[in-house]
């Protein structure tokens, strides 16, 4: 392993808000002006590189990962040595100016490859929890933190949730972290001169993962790739750090528990084929067992063997199931 390199593993923050109907109908949190968004991202230490929106939400590709803004929900995912949790204070301030109150907070991340490079409050999970506890409004009284292990030191799942009431949510979230990418496939994420970003999206097979999604992509120089997919009210997002020794790719999407269950199976199969990782972890957040039970069925036929499966329940958020797989070629 390299002594130090780019930290691919992201930190992810999902915040839900409640507000009055008339404000929500007028776009809700999407009314945040761009200066406020820049200020929030400035606190995290990243910037917007490309963006697209539709009638349901705004999506931003960041210099370090992604931001999604819905009328009552914000998701920020950042990699490298960004200070994601520093977004909470400006977010609370700007959203309360619009008349919104936070109702739920979810923070998740994997295991950093270079933990010693992380700045405060990301120095370790205890520091992160302590910081979250201090920053979050006291009315989010149901709080829980958990580290979900696997058989591998390189993959474990850190979860913190806080909410003010139990709510029912039909959406599920799937977060995939992949390491030791196939070297030949990883080379496709190095930029050629004059290469358009959509060219990389095509040749890597990313455009086939969900052909219905509109993709907003960005290619980094000399290597690295990010994209946000928008398909109606659903987002998906991919981030790739292809350098040998610390190669990493992530895939994340949301779905509804009422969707055709084959959809998520087909998507995960294609994700495995795009990256052929040596090790992958899949975290599923859902209020039902319908989703996670299908995941092994999706990836095992492609030579990924399930090595561990851990489950934990969180108030309002539902169950988080953390599964790890390794390639049979290992």
């Amino acid at each position: 392993m390299a002594v130090s390199g780019f930290e691919g593993f992201e930190k992810r923050l999902e915040l839900h808000f409640s507000g009055d109907d008339p404000i929500i109908r007028m776009g809700g949190l999407r009314q945040l002006d761009f200066e406020s968004i820049e200020e929030i991202l400035n606190a995290v230490q990243c910037t917007v590189v490309s963006a697209v929106g539709n009638q349901y939400f705004d999506s931003y590709v960041l210099s370090e990962s992604s931001l999604f803004v819905y009328s009552t929900k914000i998701i920020i995912k950042t990699c490298g040595t960004t200070q994601l949790l520093k977004s909470i204070l400006p977010l609370i301030q700007f959203t309360s100016e619009l008349g919104f109150m936070m109702s739920e907070c979810r923070y998740t991340r994997g295991n950093f490859i270079f933990p010693k490079s992380q700045p405060y409050p990301h120095t370790n999970f205890n520091d992160e929890i302590f910081y979250l506890q201090q920053q979050l409004p006291i009315h989010l009284c149901y709080r829980k933190a958990s580290v979900m292990p696997s058989k591998f030191i390189s993959h474990s799942w850190h979860v913190f949730t806080a909410c003010n009431e139990e709510s029912n949510n039909d959406l599920f979230t799937v977060e995939v972290c992949m390491t030791e990418l196939d070297r030949v496939l990883a080379r496709k994420f190095f930029k050629h001169p004059n290469m358009a970003s959509n060219e990389m999206t095509e040749v890597t097979g990313i455009s086939d993962i969900n052909p219905n999604a509109l993709i907003c992509d960005f290619v980094f120089d000399p290597c690295g790739y990010s994209m946000n997919g928008i398909d109606g009210d659903r987002y998906s997002t991919i981030h790739v750090t292809p350098e040998d020794g610390f190669s990493y790719a992530s895939y994340e999407c949301v779905g509804s528990i009422y969707d055709d269950p084959n959809d998520i199976i087909n998507i995960l199969k294609k994700v495995v084929q795009v990256f052929r990782p040596g090790t992958m972890s899949i975290s599923t957040t859902s209020t039902t067992n319908e989703v996670w039970t299908r995941i092994a069925k999706a990836v095992e036929p492609l030579g990924m063997k399930c090595r561990s499966c851990t489950m934990d329940d969180f108030p309002s958020t539902g169950s988080v199931v953390f599964q790890t797989f390794t390639s049979c070629r290992k």
Binding site: S50, A51, V52, N54, A196, S197, F218
Partner: peptide, 28 residues
């Protein structure tokens, strides 16, 4: 369907389209 969408029109016909706020692609 998505915003912003940039349409490139010459003599009344669409010759190109850029969907999304992508500075480099727009300029190119």
């Amino acid at each position: 369907e998505a915003m912003p969408t940039f349409m490139f029109i010459k003599e009344g016909k669409i010759v190109d389209k850029v969907v999304g706020a992508k500075k480099d692609e727009l300029q190119q």
